[in-house]
Amino acid sequence: MASETETAAHGTAHGAADAAHGGAEAVGMPQLDFSTFPNQIFWLAVALVVLYLILSRLALPRIASVLAERSGTITGDLEKAEELKRKAVEAEETYQKALADARAEAQRVIAEAKAELQREIDEATAKADAEIAARAAESEKAIAEIRASALENVRAVAEEVAREVVALLGGKADPKAIAEAVSAKIGGTRA
């Protein structure tokens, strides 16, 4: 069948080829030179088949996978960003909690220190108070002693004076009566 077409188109082909040789001129429209059709159609078929195989086997699956991968990556990145954001919020919460804990701890330590200090102060105060009380009691005792001894001295002096006075007046001094009189005058309970 192909040879039939070829022979049929041979006449035209020769004419065109001759013309093409003699200065490469087109006779009419080269598009309508049917002798070139088998050649064009054959090579076109080859080109289309090759192109189709390249596209369907190599190019299109690859581009489709790249596009899918890209949209997957974008979705994944968004998810990752969301995750990171969540983690940041968590970290912030942990930080705030740690801060609050530290504050509470600090408060506790301060309170403890204060209490300790207060206790020490109280202790010292109590000790000081006790000492003061002891000293005061001691002093009181000393004063009482002094006073008692003074009183004793006063009584002795008074009795002496009274006896001397009685003697001067020429009386016979009864030591017992004098002591009683002195006691009555001084009003001391200790006689």
Binding site: M29, P30, P38
Partner: peptide, 28 residues
Amino acid sequence: MDQFIVKPLFGGDELHWYTPSNVTLWLA
């Protein structure tokens, strides 16, 4: 119209259906 002439790529007058031509070159 000369730019549209189909001719064998490697010289010669014969243009069979299998002859590599300028069509073949530009399709390739």
